[in-house]
Write a protein that binds this DNA or RNA. Structure first.
Lengths: 324, 324
DNA sequence: ACGTTTTCTGTAACCGGTTACACATGAGGG
DNA sequence: CCCTCATGTGTAACCGGTTACAGAAAACGT
């Protein structure tokens, strides 16, 4: 028994011959060591968990892919938890994860706070905050440069000649939404046309984008540019703008944020600030796994750069193929 | 110790008073039973796995939601496995699932066959096939009525006056793709205009839809209707049709299959055959959990009905708002 | 040749639960 | 009053691994 265990873990003296015999026997008997028993005996389970808030926003599956690929590469499994951004689901998952003895956690969440992660810290389970850090001191963080991205978006809209730019902001409880709004405000507050009513808050989804556009257009008859806080809202915004008979980009130009592939699908295609989605997931997974292996101990912040992708929704004056 | 275990499992004589004392003590000590130890001692882990082929096709997250919600309701956890439709990933997951002692599996796959599931059968782990059954004899199956849906789609295209209808078929290895193609062929083969070149095979994704349209339009100058084998392909098809300067629906009408919400986002919106996505996931989870509880033992096939959702892409002659 | 060190393997305790079994207690029946 | 049975609790074996420890055999140094 002990020798078999040593063969499997290859970390102690085992005679080559015996090792071969064990390996052959394992194959013949189709022996598969039980993760449960190993875990119980104090070994790592080689499983990390990834908690995402919304599986139907393609941004998060995109992150998940990055996490999964890296995990797979290092022989880790990923336990995917979809929290729907609901605090109670997140709490319940955190409990479950502890009971199941996962080795580490990558979490994207606004509802969770330090206190709730305390039990994990006690159990020595490392945590990496992805995309939405609630605390950059005590945890390793992977996120993109949201404020910069917002600035790039607004400056681009100004560069193409927009004279009055509105912002569809995500919920204030999201750091990402706040950062993007701050980036927007930083630029536009210098202009005389700016009024706070140019900011409309909405949920980070298609419906939110639609509703925000309706309000913005009703309250500000002369806006000619919209910076949406994420791509789903930009999609909804575009849909609604068309419905209201606005020409995009000639009447109103539109820029999103995230870089999900759906923005290439619309007519016109949507200009957006592209985050390195896959890479963010991969970086988070790599950081977590290195922590698990003890290769790094200190917490670190990884801020990835975003990129402006110019498409039809901000190319004024260009002749586009007609949709109808 | 034994008494505590009895309190937790509430299945044997325990004095009310003692029970209370145990419960209080558990709270005071923040005691959380270890799933690992329970699993090792032969108990269920209350975890089921869901294997999906493509997390970026919204259809599958939709199924996942259904599965998750029902699982949660019955206090089960879901281990989500994204196989990318790759046989080796699926195989590797099947091994892992066995080692981790999950209780049951819901699988959406073409690559897996009976032989590969044999170890699960030996380990007495029930399996439910979802969406893409490779065998309807030995496993419980949840799927929708694909052939009927295809027939409905084609008949709708005929009803609005299409004189030559093409089909973008998914890969033949998918049962769903085959069934839909058969439904299409069943109807159109009665017509004199039908030729096999009206069927173009493509991958079940946006890019596939684009490519197929390019070929179809090149080979058949007079098609005026397209039935796409799934919505992602329909999205790609629409995009490409517009690029080629075709008016949808007046030049070419378009119908998809699945009923993902993205079809409402385009201009024009896409007519589609709606599957009860969430319900399919929920039904699969319910079946699996009932099997786990021993409430059902026989295998059963659940075929859910689909529904035609008529939208702009098949409403000929209607004035639509302009996109540009 | 003999003591020391290295290599190798087996025994047994342990991880944290479940459960068969033994045993104690009190209630009910004749 | 004694026997039986239902109720309640503790003991110990077990699930399937890991690993500290002990001890055997082989290699090495002098």
């Amino acid at each position: 028994m002990a020798t078999v265990s040593r063969v499997i873990n290859k970390n102690e003296y085992v005679n080559k011959e015996t090792e071969q015999k064990v390996i052959v026997a394992m194959q013949e008997l189709h022996y598969e060591p039980s993760s449960l028993a190993r875990g119980l005996a104090g070994k790592k389970m080689n499983t990390i968990a990834l908690m995402i808030p919304d599986i139907s926003n393609p941004f998060f599956p995109g992150l998940a892919r990055g996490v999964e690929d890296v995990a797979q590469q290092y022989d880790f499994n990923v336990f995917l938890c979809n929290s729907d951004d609901l605090a109670y689901k997140e709490k319940s998952y955190l409990e479950i994860l502890r009971k199941k003895s996962i080795d580490g956690l990558i979490i994207i969440s606004n509802n969770v706070n330090e206190e709730e992660l305390e039990p994990l810290r006690m159990a020595n389970i490392p945590v990496v905050l992805l995309d939405r850090p609630f605390n950059e001191q005590n945890y390793s963080v992977v996120r993109s440069n949201n404020r910069n991205g917002a600035i790039m978006a607004v400056e681009h809209l100004l560069a193409i000649g927009c004279k009055k730019i509105a912002h569809i902001a995500g919920p204030e409880k999201f750091v990402t939404a706040r950062e993007r709004r701050l980036g927007y405000e930083g630029i536009v507050s210098q202009y005389s046309w700016y009024t706070p009513s140019l900011i409309e808050h909405a949920n980070f989804d298609i419906e939110g984008g639609k509703q925000a556009v309706t309000k913005l257009v009703a309250n500000n008859t002369d806006i000619d540019g919209i910076f949406a806080g994420n791509d789903l809202m930009a999609l909804g915004a575009l849909k609604q703008l068309i419905k209201l008979g606005k020409n995009v980009p000639d009447d109103i130009a539109l820029c999103g944020f995230d870089g999900i592939s759906l923005t290439e699908l619309t007519q016109p295609e949507i200009t957006t600030i592209q985050q390195p989605i896959y890479e963010m997931g991969a970086a988070a997974a790599l950081t977590l796994i290195k922590k698990l292996k003890g290769e790094i101990t200190e917490t670190k912040i990884q801020e990835l750069d975003v990129k402006l992708i110019i498409r039809g929704s901000t190319e004024k004056g260009k002749k586009l193929p007609l949709a109808t």
